[in-house]
């Protein structure tokens, strides 16, 4: 078994895991976007067709999946801002590690503000 090299700047650290998370959330959001454009296009067909499909978005299981979608979007968006700052801000690289934790904290804060309200809509 090869052992993991110690003391690298990137591997196994915040830099690597934020990249992994950015990819996974990006792919998930992409596939949702494909479905979302198609379901919204149903407004052109008939009110009944659109209402029938959008009705599934209000069911408990999809309602919970929406929480996951919002969490993915929150991380992807805020970590994207972090990536922009690393690329364009003079001190971006220096603060990339602390910025990751700010991303996680802000995403969590917004999520905590959103989740109870959304769950009340879905289950209320």
């Amino acid at each position: 078994m090869p052992t993991m090299p110690a003391g690298t700047l990137y591997r196994g650290k915040v830099g690597m895991w934020s990249w992994v998370l950015h990819r996974i959330t990006g792919v998930a959001i992409f596939f949702f976007l494909l479905v979302h454009v198609l379901d919204t296009a149903l407004v052109r067909l008939s009110p009944e067709a659109y209402n029938a499909v959008i009705g599934t978005y209000k069911t408990p299981i999809i309602g919970l999946a929406e929480l996951g979608l919002v969490a993915a979007i929150l991380f992807h968006a805020l970590n994207g801002v972090r990536v922009i700052l690393i690329d364009f801000w003079r001190k971006g690289v220096k603060y990339q590690n602390v910025m990751f934790w700010i991303v996680v904290a802000v995403a969590l804060l917004i999520f905590i503000g959103f989740a109870p309200r959304h769950l009340a809509h879905v289950f209320g």
Binding site: P47, Y50, N51, I54, Y57, K58, G63, E66, V70, I73, A77, L78, G80, V81, V83, I84, F114, R117, H118, H121, V122, G124
Partner: peptide, 26 residues
Amino acid sequence: GALLVILIFGHLFTNLFLGEGIKAID
């Protein structure tokens, strides 16, 4: 990406947070 942060956060806020959220969408 920078523009989408504003556009999508605004989209989620008006459609999922305000009023009755997902329940009101038809």
